[in-house]
Design a binder for these strands. Structure first.
Lengths: 152, 152
DNA sequence: CCCAATTAGTGGTATATGCCACTAAATCAA
DNA sequence: TTGATTTAGTGGCATATACCACTAATTGGG
């Protein structure tokens, strides 16, 4: 592999995606920051809000996130009193999650800021292009990459 | 904000991007795993490789990553002997980075696996669509989001 | 030449995220 | 019913990534 014939790093779909995520994440973070939440936290609170006291597993599945990662991410939000959990009475393995009143207030404040970031993004890239981008990203999220392994 | 009229979470460009990044990151990670590297580490070694003993700041800028984050990310690679650093003799504030021979060998092994992931991705989404996606992501990485702040 | 301002990295702290081993609860099969 | 299996979460550990305060080195005026 001679250094002179190397493809640019931009060739890697994964690297390009991560780089864009760092950039855009920082932008949304900066805009949402006055609420005291990170953009990821705002997104998580929102996901909880739109769910009907969702189980942790359901949230993790929606976000395509590891269940234990969700547990970790939830901790500061519980610590700060924005979220609370309770065992599902039907199945005590299941832990359900809901916003506290403070959590809802915090979310509403953060959503106002989020709208600014979202609007700004769409102004800059164009509403149509943004929509196409989200569709492409959702496609990726829905993909099935199964490498042909032995099917037992 | 009534729960019944809420936009789906997929409306947030940032959330969609992160979710896709988790999904794709896991795929590339899984494929590259036999090399013992994470996809992020493979990408970082590659970035170092294609640079000419790049300074940390230069790497961070290319990857649109915080300088201190880069420092942290580099540590396991240094610990494992894949990367070494040295002060730039022209400017001793600057720390340059290069691969060790073991690091180069590791990168070469990881790149073979990376190609499998990359190929599989392009087979699944289509080469053309993948290329357009990367272009869109690179556009985002290059955007200037300046919110109209006071210009002093 | 000296001091103020700028630049490059470091280390600490915090969140984001994944894996693994483990526990508890529910389910399934004999 | 009971023992094996599956399912849902937890806790520990490791990497990814950001911000901040701090240090060291360089640069730009006087």
């Amino acid at each position: 592999m001679s250094k002179d014939s190397l493809p640019g790093l931009t060739l890697c779909n994964n690297a390009a995606l991560r780089r864009a995520a760092r950039k855009l994440g920082k932008f949304y973070d900066d805009v949402v920051e006055p609420s005291g939440l990170k953009a990821t936290q705002q997104g998580l609170l929102y996901q909880i809000h739109i769910g009907d006291e969702p189980a942790m597993g359901a949230i993790a599945a929606s976000l395509i996130m590891d269940l234990s990662a969700l547990g970790h991410t939830l901790k500061p939000l519980i610590r700060d009193g924005y979220v609370e959990t309770f065992a599902d009475p039907e199945d005590r393995r299941v832990k359900r999650v809901r916003l506290t009143p403070q959590g809802l207030a915090k979310l509403e404040a953060a959503m106002k800021l989020w709208q600014i970031a979202q609007q700004r993004f769409e102004d800059v890239v164009g509403r149509d292009k943004a929509e196409k981008l989200r569709a492409a990203l959702d496609d990726i999220a829905a993909l099935d990459f199964d490498l042909p392994q032995a099917t037992p």
